[in-house]
């Protein structure tokens, strides 16, 4: 009986692992193809097998994608657009996260008449599709004189991100006992001091979650980037699109692949460094209650 059970469990385990490995393999296969292709030269791609390892690995495609590939009429590679993205992402992430933290703190712990309605209205912002706000936002940026600028893109991403960051922080702060606020009030701490001394130190997980979320969203954004940027202020996603669609001579799949990896690398790195906090932060509220 015992032995039979044991066998059963082992068989079940094996089946689970088999399925997991299978799906992981299917899921990772495109990345594998991208990576190996980026290390092959164009001859090998034409003649060889898609899944084969590169016979003679070369960094030619990476160098070209970074520094000299043509994106439309310019041929400076992805580098300038990579730095554009960095200049957009950092301020937008920082500003939207800080605003979200303040909003969430106020909406969770300093309820006022209409605060629930305000939160509901802000939540609404999470469900508005990008496309809906394209035209009005373009008018607004024009009126502000920010059309085709990095600042304009930062503004768009901050506004669009506030709904999400507020939601994250508000839901996290709701789980922190209100008695802490009461105790601190009696101790003579003000709105801002309670935030700084008590809430901020408790917020590491939710900061990590919000930063990862915002970083990924803004780095990967294509639509806002393509609509609101000028020729010199395009983010890397737009440049990648242009690079792939510009064909001078034959199609250089290896360069395309390298460029795609370069464009995706920052979000990958962020996930690898902070991913465990991401999972922990998302579930923290559920466990703590």
């Amino acid at each position: 009986m015992n032995k039979f059970n044991l066998l059963n469990i082992n068989f079940g385990r094996a089946a689970i692992y088999f399925i997991l490995f299978l799906f992981a393999f299917i899921y990772l296969a495109p990345l594998y193809v991208m990576f190996t292709t980026s290390l092959k030269d164009i001859e090998e791609i034409r003649s060889g097998n898609l899944m084969a390892l590169p016979i003679d690995p070369t960094l030619y495609a990476w160098k070209k994608a970074w520094a000299s590939a043509c994106t439309g009429s310019e041929c400076k590679g992805l580098a300038p657009y990579f730095w554009n993205s960095v200049r957009i992402v950092f301020p937008a992430v920082i500003i939207s996260t800080i605003l979200g933290a303040f909003n969430g703190y106020a909406l969770a712990k300093w309820k006022f008449k209409g605060s629930e309605f305000l939160f509901g209205a802000l939540l609404f912002g999470c469900f508005i599709p990008f496309q809906v706000i394209l035209l009005p936002m373009a008018k607004l940026l024009g009126a502000l004189g920010l059309a085709n600028t990095v600042t304009g893109l930062v503004l768009v991403h901050v506004i669009y991100g506030i709904a999400f960051t507020t939601l994250f922080f508000r839901n996290y702060y709701v789980g922190i006992p209100t008695e802490l606020v009461k105790a601190a009030k009696l101790d003579g701490a003000s709105f801002l001091k309670i935030f700084r001394h008590i809430f901020i130190p408790l917020s590491t997980p939710i900061f990590v979650v919000t930063i990862i979320w915002q970083f990924t969203q803004i780095w990967n954004d294509f639509l806002f980037g393509v609509v609101y940027s000028g020729s010199g202020t395009q983010p890397i996603t737009v440049a990648l699109n242009n690079l792939v669609n510009t064909s001078v001579g034959g199609k250089e799949y290896n360069v395309d692949m390298a460029a795609a990896i370069i464009a995706a690398l920052p979000t990958l790195i962020v996930y690898i460094i902070a991913g465990k906090y991401f999972v922990r932060g998302l579930t923290a509220g559920a466990v703590k209650g």
Partner: peptide
């Protein structure tokens, strides 16, 4: 001064800072 049912101690501060927080403020 108030003592709460849940104690409401500031979780990220050590005991000394918890006690002195009001004085600090």
């Amino acid at each position: 001064a108030m003592v709460f049912q849940s104690y409401a101690l500031y979780p990220t501060m050590n005991v000394a800072r918890n006690i002195c927080f009001g004085l600090e403020m």
